[in-house]
Design a protein around this nucleic acid. Sequence first.
DNA 1: ACAGCCATGTAAGTCGTTACATGATTGC
DNA 2: GCAATCATGTAACGACTTACATGGCTGT
Lengths: 197, 197
Amino acid sequence: MSLRHALLALLAARPMTGYDLAKQFDVSVAYVWHAPHSQIYPELRKLEASGLVSAEATPRGTLATKRTYSITSEGVAELERWVAELAPTPPERDAAHLKATYFEFGSFGNARRQFEAHLSHHRRQQLKWETHVAQLEKRDTDLLRRRLAIAPEAEHEAIVAYKVHVYRGLVERARVEVEWAREGLALVDRLEAAGKD
Amino acid sequence: MSLRHALLALLAARPMTGYDLAKQFDVSVAYVWHAPHSQIYPELRKLEASGLVSAEATPRGTLATKRTYSITSEGVAELERWVAELAPTPPERDAAHLKATYFEFGSFGNARRQFEAHLSHHRRQQLKWETHVAQLEKRDTDLLRRRLAIAPEAEHEAIVAYKVHVYRGLVERARVEVEWAREGLALVDRLEAAGKD
DNA sequence: ACAGCCATGTAAGTCGTTACATGATTGC
DNA sequence: GCAATCATGTAACGACTTACATGGCTGT
């Protein structure tokens, strides 16, 4: 149920085509909620059918139509309803930790490879998010500027602050994963040394 | 693809029925990989069909049959293959952080409620995992004892250490979420105070 | 002419959720 | 007799993945 709200939230900043939305999912929203275009296009149709967004269709070539979607007042109301709703936390599903629980079924070398992959992935994530935090703080992303342009000035601080807080949280989370992987590597070293006696 | 491997890993400790497995998913594995019984029973049939587990059927009442599943040597091989495989990291999908990005669509009171729910959820998780770590360290869970009983003594330390490392990682992760929620609450206080001028 | 980006879709399949459905055994 | 727990399934639906498929526009 989050995809529709992610789309509505993006459209609250400015009208966009499905393609624009798919791109935004790659450069910012995807940091918290990933979605491929094959999921986005049908969802936009559903949102349109339920009146939460409206589409302006402009012909493109002879066959295709380009649709620019805007959020409607019902859409804004739905966004507000969603933000006010206390969502149940989803069940845990963590493939990396599941696998690490059973590293004894592989070699020390394998455990190292796995921890190293974990480390480099989350290190990259951390850098990406740190960059994003810096941009948000400078109010230097297209979407944020658009969002601020249509919001009353009194709200600007909160709008920026919430987003910065979210991405700082993700930076911290990535940092913890990196730390966990490093400690994992140290653990493997200890286990291997102990086994050599 | 992780459900099958979680099942295989559990069956590597001891033979179990679908019901036993479902219970294990509630008390330990579910901490990393949740699955309802409606998913477990069909998956066991598939594992049986592909020869990774074998089932011993004992009649139960007039109609039902109770099936006790054991891992086969092919199943162990598949576990080893899975542990050695470098799995791609799944795309981000974090409803709580997504929503927090857009807290400006709700009131300060709402943002507080949301952060408080986040805080208490992850606080509970943290305690649950801390308890689990303590049990693992004392080698005081049924499953772990069974696992150690059939493993060569030289491997015991690693078997315990990997599991402890995983759950400590989850404790840390929960701690970071708790911290994030607390900082969120402080942020809301600051924003509200600033807005009152 | 060709590359690269703009733009939109469908289809098959897997995974997971939620609800429905049934019956046996054990201990009080 | 009743409650709790043991035990096993099915079905409908929704979310997500992966692959396939098509074609337009812009600049070099």
